[in-house]
Simulated scan of single mutants.
Amino acid sequence: MTPRRAQLRDFLRTRRARIAPGEVGMATAGRRRTPGLRREEVAALAGVGVSWYTWLEQGRDINVSTEVLDAIGRALRLTGPERAHLYVLAGLNPPPPRADATRGDEITPELRHLLEAWTPRPAILRDRYWHLLAINDAARWVFGFDDADHHCLISFFTNMRYRRAHLHWAAVAPSVVAAFRADAAHAPDDPGFGRVIKELSAVSPEFAELWARHDVGTPGQAVKAVRHPEAGDLVFDMTTLAVVDHPDRYLELYNPRPGSETAARLERPRTRTAAPA
């Protein structure tokens, strides 16, 4: 037995051992030699054969489907992380996090504090579809975001102030679209990405043309250069970080490029604002 299948065996055993029969509406009459549910009870709750479930729990080399794993997960009342763990142990890719469970309007005070603490450097919190969830004041000032901006890619193509600020917008646009395609490729059947593509294609022929190329890039590290009307030329190293406890969320942190005057120029408007009237 491989180590992975041995872990699958132990994981399933411990998950069913923690559920009392009465919790799932099953009779508890008679003496039970093991705590929790029996294998045949889990099989009945999941709607699978007893022999098949027994083989799965024994770590045998059998074929499994996402539908069956989901049914077992519901029967064993697995949490989201436990469900993903079951997929991995069974040899399948975990499903993407549910957007309705990870997005929402609630942003933790810790994340908000991090965004503000990054000031005077820009910082953005977005979701997997590139919707803007929160930005700090520096991002508003540097990139020209306003209350109408709700999506990174849509703003990149439709916010004229945002576009004009980018020193190399036309050269960068193909790589931005290619990075979005790379993210969308992880969930080809997810309607969330489809809605963004449809909305932006309807208002931006430039995006539609680039999207039709089917280029795929690498999201993550990038250099961003902007020309600000007050601060002048600003150059940033942009790093994207996943939020571990909210896998649908990503932090984009912009750090002044070493060797540029960006850091000093970012301090000037804050100094003027803080000065007494």
Rank of each mutant, 00 (worst) to 15 (best):
N136I: 10
A178D: 01
L115S: 07
T34A: 08
R39F: 04
T108A: 12
I107Q: 09
G25C: 04
H113K: 13
L132F: 12
P276A: 14
R4W: 09
P97Y: 03
S201K: 10
D189C: 03
P258N: 03
A182I: 00
L200G: 04
A275D: 11
W55E: 07
P247W: 05
W141E: 15
R16D: 00
R39W: 06
H166F: 11
A6Y: 00
P95N: 11
S175N: 09
W118T: 13
R33P: 00
A101L: 15
A20W: 01
P120A: 09
L78I: 04
D147R: 11
R161H: 13
Y53S: 06
A277S: 15
E67H: 08
L12N: 05
T102K: 07
V88L: 13
P97G: 00
I62T: 00
E261V: 03
G30H: 10
V142C: 12
T34R: 06
G217R: 08
D248G: 11
G91C: 02
I107F: 01
L234S: 04
T79R: 10
H150K: 12
V48T: 09
D237A: 00
A139I: 03
R265A: 05
E110M: 14
M26I: 13
A27S: 13
T271H: 12
K198M: 10
L125W: 10
E209T: 15
H246A: 15
A148P: 11
R164I: 02
W118D: 06
T2M: 13
L133I: 09
L167P: 02
Q58A: 00
P81S: 08
V24L: 09
R15H: 03
H168T: 13
R161F: 05
R163V: 11
S201M: 01
T262Q: 03
V196Y: 01
P97M: 08
G232A: 02
R60H: 06
P122V: 04
D100L: 04
R112Q: 14
V243D: 12
S201H: 10
R140H: 11
W211Y: 02
A43W: 02
R39Y: 01
V223C: 04
E41F: 00
G217A: 07
V216R: 10
W118E: 05
I135F: 10
D105M: 14
D146A: 08
S51W: 02
F145Y: 10
I19E: 11
R15I: 01
T28G: 09
A184S: 04
F193Y: 06
R164G: 14
E261Y: 04
R121K: 15
T54C: 05
K198T: 15
V223H: 03
M238C: 12
G192R: 06
L115E: 14
P174S: 09
A171D: 14
D61L: 00
S260A: 05
V88D: 08
R268Q: 14
R31Q: 11
K198R: 15
H214L: 10
V196G: 03
R272N: 11
V142Q: 02
A139M: 05
G91R: 04
V142E: 12
S155Y: 07
F11E: 05
E267T: 15
A20C: 12
D61M: 02
A29S: 13
G73D: 07
A222D: 09
D70K: 11
I197S: 09
W211F: 01
D10W: 08
V176L: 03
D149H: 10
R140C: 03
L133T: 01
A84K: 05
R33C: 08
